[in-house]
């Protein structure tokens, strides 16, 4: 059993289901990537795992504990962290305040964690007293990831972190994510940029119509002709 796993997830937004028995799991020190065409339920699957969507069937476990019924806020306490796709920083607050807010639940000394985030994203240390809203797109994503890391989570979930950033920034961001992985965190990413994401993925889930179509390690999926043809543009 993986550290985090969602099994046989079924559910949707009122009316019809979006997820039809979807399975996602990831272990500590691993990067899992969810891929798929538009409307396949990628973000929905992530929301379900994070508790932002009520499941009609199936369950989610974290470290062997059933967390299916917990609210997102409770899951944060249990060690999950989420970087939403948009509006993922406090634009009117400084970089450092963003990090402090990320650690809001913690009552202990957070200076060390802040130092670790600055270590990971040196540019943020430079701009620590600037309003996060004034930063470039790539830097904002770094603030967003940094904020999520402030709770010292066991699981980090990223919803399309590279949407709307340049390829160079994207590669850099993926490099950082690999660094984060080395600290022993389980990472789950929903991605549009399939090829680059699979490059760093230990395991990839290709969803179609809310179901798992392919599940394999990143390299294997990259080699898989059907995946290549349908999702990687040949």
């Amino acid at each position: 059993m993986s550290y985090l796993s969602g099994t046989n997830m079924r559910g949707g937004y009122g009316g019809a289901d979006v997820l039809h028995g979807c399975e996602i799991s990831v272990d500590k020190g691993e990067v899992a990537v969810i891929l798929g065409p538009n409307g396949a339920g990628k973000s929905t699957a992530m929301k379900a795992i994070f508790g932002m969507l009520e499941l009609r069937e199936g369950n989610v476990t974290l470290g062997g504990k059933d967390i299916t019924k917990l609210s997102p806020q409770r899951r944060v306490r249990e060690g999950m962290a989420m970087v939403p796709q948009t509006n993922n920083i406090f634009t009117t607050m400084t970089v450092e305040e963003n990090l402090e807010m990320g650690a809001f639940l913690r009552r202990d000394d957070i200076r060390e964690t802040i130092a670790r985030v600055y270590n990971l994203f040196p540019i943020l240390a430079e701009k620590r007293h600037q309003d996060a809203g004034e930063l470039s797109g790539g830097q904002r994503q770094q603030v967003a990831v940094g904020r999520a890391l402030m709770t010292q989570p066991d699981v980090l979930m990223l919803d399309e972190p590279t949407a709307g950033v340049s390829p160079i920034v994207m590669n850099e961001l993926f490099d950082r994510i690999l660094e984060v992985k080395k600290t022993g965190i389980a990472i789950l990413i929903v991605e549009q940029n399939a090829r680059q994401a699979l490059d760093i993925a230990d395991i990839g889930y290709v969803l179609v119509n809310g179901e798992n179509k392919f599940t394999d390690n990143g390299q294997a999926l990259l080699q898989n002709p059907e995946v290549r043809h349908s999702f990687l543009g040949g």
Binding site: Q73, V76, N87, I89, F90, F104, T151
Partner: peptide, 22 residues
């Protein structure tokens, strides 16, 4: 203050504030 900052954070981005445990 921590409380003051959390108020600013909540005013700035309600959903993210919730995700941060405010």
């Amino acid at each position: 203050t921590r409380t003051g900052k959390s108020m600013r954070a909540y005013a700035d981005n309600r959903d993210l504030a919730l995700l941060s445990g405010i």
